[in-house]
Protein backbone atom coordinates (compact mmCIF):
# COMPACT_ATOMS: atom_id res chain seq x y z
CA UNK A 1 0.00 0.00 0.00
CA UNK A 2 1.07 3.54 -0.76
CA UNK A 3 0.50 4.68 2.77
CA UNK A 4 3.31 2.46 3.95
CA UNK A 5 6.09 4.68 2.65
CA UNK A 6 8.40 5.28 5.59
CA UNK A 7 11.24 7.31 4.14
CA UNK A 8 11.75 10.33 6.32
CA UNK A 9 9.00 9.40 8.72
CA UNK A 10 9.09 10.77 12.23
CA UNK A 11 9.60 8.20 14.98
CA UNK A 12 8.11 9.34 18.23
CA UNK A 13 10.39 9.03 21.24
CA UNK A 14 11.98 11.26 23.85
CA UNK A 15 15.71 10.76 23.42
CA UNK A 16 18.56 13.25 23.70
CA UNK A 17 18.71 13.39 19.92
CA UNK A 18 14.98 14.06 19.71
CA UNK A 19 15.33 16.96 22.12
CA UNK A 20 18.22 18.63 20.31
CA UNK A 21 17.49 21.88 18.58
CA UNK A 22 16.59 21.23 14.93
CA UNK A 23 19.28 23.69 13.87
CA UNK A 24 21.90 21.53 15.57
CA UNK A 25 20.58 18.48 13.79
CA UNK A 26 20.43 20.26 10.44
CA UNK A 27 23.94 21.65 10.66
CA UNK A 28 25.11 18.39 12.18
CA UNK A 29 23.72 16.45 9.23
CA UNK A 30 25.40 18.81 6.80
CA UNK A 31 28.65 18.42 8.70
CA UNK A 32 28.29 14.65 8.71
CA UNK A 33 27.66 14.54 4.97
CA UNK A 34 30.67 16.75 4.33
CA UNK A 35 32.79 14.56 6.62
CA UNK A 36 32.07 11.61 4.36
CA UNK A 37 33.97 13.33 1.58
CA UNK A 38 36.88 14.45 3.72
CA UNK A 39 38.69 11.18 4.10
CA UNK A 40 40.14 9.04 1.36
CA UNK A 41 40.75 6.00 3.47
CA UNK A 42 38.65 3.47 5.30
CA UNK A 43 39.80 4.49 8.77
CA UNK A 44 38.10 7.85 8.33
CA UNK A 45 34.89 6.05 7.56
CA UNK A 46 35.33 3.93 10.63
CA UNK A 47 35.16 7.11 12.68
CA UNK A 48 32.00 8.11 10.79
CA UNK A 49 30.44 4.70 11.38
CA UNK A 50 31.29 4.87 15.04
CA UNK A 51 29.83 8.36 15.32
CA UNK A 52 26.66 7.33 13.54
CA UNK A 53 26.32 4.20 15.65
CA UNK A 54 26.46 6.31 18.79
CA UNK A 55 23.83 8.67 17.39
CA UNK A 56 21.55 5.76 16.46
CA UNK A 57 21.98 4.29 19.91
CA UNK A 58 21.21 7.63 21.56
CA UNK A 59 18.18 8.24 19.38
CA UNK A 60 16.44 5.08 20.68
CA UNK A 61 14.99 4.52 17.22
CA UNK A 62 15.15 0.76 16.57
CA UNK A 63 17.81 0.01 13.95
CA UNK A 64 15.29 -2.19 12.12
CA UNK A 65 13.00 0.80 11.69
CA UNK A 66 15.80 2.88 10.18
CA UNK A 67 16.78 0.13 7.77
CA UNK A 68 13.15 -0.28 6.71
CA UNK A 69 13.25 3.27 5.40
CA UNK A 70 16.37 2.38 3.39
CA UNK A 71 14.56 -0.21 1.27
CA UNK A 72 13.63 2.43 -1.25
CA UNK A 73 17.26 3.22 -2.03
CA UNK A 74 18.54 -0.34 -2.36
CA UNK A 75 18.10 -0.05 -6.10
CA UNK A 76 20.21 3.11 -6.20
CA UNK A 77 22.84 1.39 -4.11
CA UNK A 78 23.05 -1.60 -6.44
CA UNK A 79 23.42 0.61 -9.49
CA UNK A 80 26.24 2.54 -7.81
CA UNK A 81 28.05 -0.64 -6.87
CA UNK A 82 27.66 -2.24 -10.30
CA UNK A 83 28.72 0.89 -12.18
CA UNK A 84 31.79 1.35 -10.04
CA UNK A 85 32.69 -2.33 -10.32
CA UNK A 86 32.42 -2.36 -14.09
CA UNK A 87 33.71 0.99 -15.17
CA UNK A 88 36.75 1.60 -13.00
CA UNK A 89 40.03 0.89 -14.76
CA UNK A 90 43.10 -0.43 -12.98
CA UNK A 91 44.70 -3.69 -11.97
CA UNK A 92 42.59 -6.60 -13.14
CA UNK A 93 41.37 -9.10 -10.58
CA UNK A 94 39.02 -11.23 -12.66
CA UNK A 95 38.00 -10.94 -16.26
CA UNK A 96 35.26 -12.86 -18.01
CA UNK A 97 33.33 -12.27 -21.22
CA UNK A 98 33.62 -8.50 -21.75
CA UNK A 99 33.71 -7.66 -18.08
CA UNK A 100 36.81 -6.74 -16.17
CA UNK A 101 36.82 -6.24 -12.45
CA UNK A 102 39.70 -4.32 -10.98
CA UNK A 103 41.07 -3.81 -7.52
CA UNK A 104 40.36 -0.11 -7.91
CA UNK A 105 36.83 -1.02 -8.96
CA UNK A 106 36.22 -3.12 -5.89
CA UNK A 107 37.63 -0.40 -3.70
CA UNK A 108 35.57 2.31 -5.35
CA UNK A 109 32.38 0.24 -5.26
CA UNK A 110 32.89 -0.52 -1.62
CA UNK A 111 33.68 3.07 -0.70
CA UNK A 112 30.80 4.50 -2.67
CA UNK A 113 28.33 2.01 -1.23
CA UNK A 114 29.57 2.85 2.22
CA UNK A 115 29.43 6.59 1.59
CA UNK A 116 25.93 6.41 0.18
CA UNK A 117 24.60 4.20 2.99
CA UNK A 118 26.11 6.44 5.64
CA UNK A 119 24.73 9.50 3.90
CA UNK A 120 21.19 8.13 3.82
CA UNK A 121 21.40 6.70 7.34
CA UNK A 122 22.78 9.97 8.66
CA UNK A 123 20.08 12.09 7.16
CA UNK A 124 17.34 9.67 8.14
CA UNK A 125 18.46 10.01 11.76
CA UNK A 126 17.64 13.67 11.39
CA UNK A 127 14.20 13.15 9.85
CA UNK A 128 13.36 10.30 12.20
CA UNK A 129 14.06 12.35 15.30
CA UNK A 130 12.67 15.72 14.21
CA UNK A 131 9.02 16.47 13.54
CA UNK A 132 8.63 17.87 10.03
CA UNK A 133 7.36 21.13 11.47
CA UNK A 134 10.32 21.43 13.76
CA UNK A 135 12.54 20.69 10.82
CA UNK A 136 11.03 23.41 8.65
CA UNK A 137 11.31 25.81 11.58
CA UNK A 138 14.96 24.91 11.84
CA UNK A 139 15.47 25.44 8.15
CA UNK A 140 13.75 28.78 8.27
CA UNK A 141 16.05 29.83 11.05
CA UNK A 142 19.25 28.45 9.50
CA UNK A 143 18.44 30.09 6.18
CA UNK A 144 17.30 33.39 7.68
CA UNK A 145 20.48 35.27 6.67
CA UNK A 146 19.28 34.69 3.11
CA UNK A 147 16.37 37.04 3.79
CA UNK A 148 18.83 39.87 3.29
CA UNK A 149 19.17 38.91 -0.34
CA UNK A 150 15.37 38.70 -0.61
CA UNK A 151 15.01 34.96 -0.52
CA UNK A 152 11.44 34.30 0.75
CA UNK A 153 12.66 32.07 3.55
CA UNK A 154 9.41 31.97 5.53
CA UNK A 155 7.35 31.21 2.46
CA UNK A 156 9.67 28.40 1.40
CA UNK A 157 9.48 26.74 4.80
CA UNK A 158 5.69 27.17 4.92
CA UNK A 159 5.43 25.54 1.51
CA UNK A 160 7.55 22.66 2.66
CA UNK A 161 5.53 22.03 5.75
CA UNK A 162 2.26 22.15 3.82
CA UNK A 163 3.66 19.76 1.23
CA UNK A 164 4.66 17.39 4.02
CA UNK A 165 1.19 17.54 5.48
CA UNK A 166 -0.53 16.83 2.18
CA UNK A 167 1.70 14.09 0.79
CA UNK A 168 -0.04 11.28 2.72
CA UNK A 169 -3.46 12.67 1.81
CA UNK A 170 -2.59 12.85 -1.86
CA UNK A 171 -1.07 9.37 -1.81
CA UNK A 172 -4.26 7.97 -0.36
CA UNK A 173 -6.21 9.83 -2.97
CA UNK A 174 -4.02 8.39 -5.73
CA UNK A 175 -4.76 4.95 -4.43
CA UNK A 176 -8.49 5.65 -4.44
CA UNK A 177 -8.64 7.13 -7.94
CA UNK A 178 -6.52 4.29 -9.25
CA UNK A 179 -8.92 1.73 -7.84
CA UNK A 180 -11.91 3.63 -9.17
CA UNK A 181 -10.45 3.70 -12.67
CA UNK A 182 -9.51 0.02 -12.47
CA UNK A 183 -13.16 -0.62 -11.62
CA UNK A 184 -13.93 1.13 -14.89
CA UNK A 185 -11.64 -1.25 -16.74
CA UNK A 186 -8.51 0.91 -16.77
CA UNK A 187 -5.27 -0.99 -17.06
CA UNK A 188 -2.17 0.52 -15.46
CA UNK A 189 0.03 -2.55 -15.64
CA UNK A 190 0.34 -3.94 -19.14
CA UNK A 191 1.45 -2.58 -22.50
CA UNK A 192 4.42 -0.66 -23.78
CA UNK A 193 5.80 2.57 -22.45
CA UNK A 194 3.53 4.84 -24.50
CA UNK A 195 0.41 2.86 -23.70
CA UNK A 196 1.26 2.94 -20.04
CA UNK A 197 1.97 6.63 -20.05
CA UNK A 198 -1.37 7.20 -21.76
CA UNK A 199 -3.08 5.01 -19.19
CA UNK A 200 -1.94 7.44 -16.52
CA UNK A 201 -4.13 10.27 -17.86
CA UNK A 202 -7.29 9.03 -16.10
CA UNK A 203 -5.26 9.00 -12.90
CA UNK A 204 -3.32 12.25 -13.23
CA UNK A 205 -6.11 14.55 -14.41
CA UNK A 206 -8.37 13.86 -11.42
CA UNK A 207 -5.37 13.99 -9.11
CA UNK A 208 -4.32 17.43 -10.33
CA UNK A 209 -7.85 18.74 -10.14
CA UNK A 210 -8.13 17.49 -6.61
CA UNK A 211 -4.75 18.97 -5.65
CA UNK A 212 -5.77 22.36 -6.99
CA UNK A 213 -9.11 22.20 -5.23
CA UNK A 214 -7.37 21.37 -1.98
CA UNK A 215 -4.84 24.16 -2.50
CA UNK A 216 -7.66 26.60 -3.05
CA UNK A 217 -9.55 25.46 0.04
CA UNK A 218 -6.42 25.59 2.12
CA UNK A 219 -5.51 29.08 0.98
CA UNK A 220 -8.97 30.22 1.98
CA UNK A 221 -8.76 28.52 5.35
CA UNK A 222 -5.35 30.07 6.03
CA UNK A 223 -6.55 33.53 5.14
CA UNK A 224 -9.60 33.08 7.32
CA UNK A 225 -7.21 32.37 10.17
CA UNK A 226 -5.41 35.66 9.63
CA UNK A 227 -2.41 34.27 7.79
CA UNK A 228 -0.54 37.04 5.98
CA UNK A 229 2.99 35.80 5.50
CA UNK A 230 5.86 35.87 7.95
CA UNK A 231 5.36 39.44 9.18
CA UNK A 232 3.80 40.07 12.60
CA UNK A 233 3.97 36.36 13.34
CA UNK A 234 4.88 34.92 16.70
CA UNK A 235 5.84 31.32 17.27
CA UNK A 236 4.15 28.71 19.35
CA UNK A 237 7.36 26.75 19.54
CA UNK A 238 10.20 29.24 19.18
CA UNK A 239 13.66 27.77 18.75
CA UNK A 240 15.90 28.27 21.73
CA UNK A 241 19.42 26.94 22.20
CA UNK A 242 20.03 25.07 25.42
CA UNK A 243 23.13 23.80 27.10
CA UNK A 244 22.93 20.40 25.40
CA UNK A 245 22.90 22.11 22.02
CA UNK A 246 26.19 23.83 22.81
CA UNK A 247 27.68 20.52 23.87
CA UNK A 248 26.41 18.93 20.67
CA UNK A 249 28.12 21.59 18.58
CA UNK A 250 31.32 20.91 20.50
CA UNK A 251 31.09 17.20 19.82
CA UNK A 252 30.52 17.93 16.15
CA UNK A 253 33.70 19.97 15.93
CA UNK A 254 35.67 17.22 17.65
CA UNK A 255 34.16 14.66 15.29
CA UNK A 256 35.10 16.61 12.16
CA UNK A 257 38.63 17.05 13.45
CA UNK A 258 38.84 13.33 14.21
CA UNK A 259 37.71 12.41 10.70
CA UNK A 260 40.25 14.75 9.11
CA UNK A 261 43.11 13.47 11.22
CA UNK A 262 42.30 9.77 11.18
CA UNK A 263 41.30 9.93 7.51
CA UNK A 264 44.92 10.72 6.58
CA UNK A 265 46.05 7.20 7.45
CA UNK A 266 45.43 4.32 5.06
CA UNK A 267 45.84 0.61 5.81
CA UNK A 268 47.64 -1.35 3.12
CA UNK A 269 45.67 -4.55 2.38
CA UNK A 270 45.78 -6.69 -0.75
CA UNK A 271 48.34 -4.54 -2.51
CA UNK A 272 46.29 -1.44 -2.05
CA UNK A 273 45.92 1.26 0.54
CA UNK A 274 42.37 1.24 2.05
Amino acid sequence: MLRDITLGQYYQSDSVIHRLDPRVKLLGTVAFVVSLFLSDYFLGYLVAILFLAICVELSTVPFKFIVKGMKTIVFLLIITVVCNLLFTTGTTVVSFWKVTITVEGIRMAFMMALRLSLLILGSSIMTLTTTPNNLTDGMESVMSPLKKIRVPVHEISMMMSIALRFIPILLEETDKIMKAQIARGADFETGGLIKRAKALIPLLVPLFISAFRRANDLALAMEARCYRGGEHRTKMKPLKYRKRDGIAYGILVIYIAAVIIVGKFGIPVGGFVW
Binding site: K176, I177, A180, A183, I201, P202, P206
Partner: peptide
Protein backbone atom coordinates in the same frame (compact mmCIF):
# COMPACT_ATOMS: atom_id res chain seq x y z
CA UNK B 1 -19.95 -2.31 -11.45
CA UNK B 2 -18.52 -0.48 -8.46
CA UNK B 3 -19.22 3.21 -7.96
CA UNK B 4 -16.82 4.65 -5.39
CA UNK B 5 -17.47 7.38 -2.85
CA UNK B 6 -17.42 10.82 -4.45
CA UNK B 7 -17.25 9.23 -7.90
CA UNK B 8 -17.19 12.66 -9.56
CA UNK B 9 -13.57 12.87 -8.43
CA UNK B 10 -12.61 10.38 -11.16
CA UNK B 11 -14.02 12.35 -14.07
CA UNK B 12 -11.20 13.37 -16.38
Amino acid sequence: GLVFQYPEHQLF
